[in-house]
Design a protein around this nucleic acid. Sequence first.
DNA 1: GTAATCAGTTACTTCAAGGTAAGTGGTTAC
DNA 2: GTAACCACTTACCTTGAAGTAACTGATTAC
Lengths: 104, 104
Amino acid sequence: MLSILPVRDTLDVIGGKWKILILISIMEGNHHFREIERSIPNLSTKVLSDQLKDLETNQLISRSVSNGFPVRTAYTLTEHGKTLQKLILEMHNWGVLHRKKIIQ
Amino acid sequence: MLSILPVRDTLDVIGGKWKILILISIMEGNHHFREIERSIPNLSTKVLSDQLKDLETNQLISRSVSNGFPVRTAYTLTEHGKTLQKLILEMHNWGVLHRKKIIQ
DNA sequence: GTAATCAGTTACTTCAAGGTAAGTGGTTAC
DNA sequence: GTAACCACTTACCTTGAAGTAACTGATTAC
């Protein structure tokens, strides 16, 4: 008997059009704002900014600003964010399976 | 290097507010239209009807109509639909973990 | 014969996620 | 000193998912 709330919580956090893409981009080594932006086609600065705030609020990523000049911000996965990796891999694998099934 | 498309495919199929809830309801033994509708609070007939069509298009559920009277429709998971169970369980588990982390 | 149930459809509205475009304030390269 | 880059913000607009409400057509119970 699965209760519904936890699954909805998960979708709130990683659902939508961009959140998973941004997480994957950071996982793959893109840590700066423009770097992440350039790595994901059609992602606007406004949407990226909004989504990064959401991800930070949910403690999946952390934002740090270097004290030196030029000031550079760096986004990294938190330990909590890293617990998503297995789930993202599962979603990837199921997506591949599904595409094979549907497109044939 | 995870490509983005498969994860997006997965979200297209199980994302949104209702699809996973409907799948879980069917998994738990609700097979008739009104049965599914009653099992999920605040779900309207129109939305249920739309979502069931989507799920059928994606070959996750199948719709069968009994030849006898009264005509009853039955929605069941396909074999392909059953491959989602592991992923849904993962989403459930991560949701529980996340709620602990955020709400404390 | 009328009230209720099943399995939906149709027409219309609302709303939040996402998109567009321009601007801000600082730094660096030449 | 001006052009370009970094890291955004602000204001406004668009669109599609979801919600509301009423209706359909068949069957069954009383």
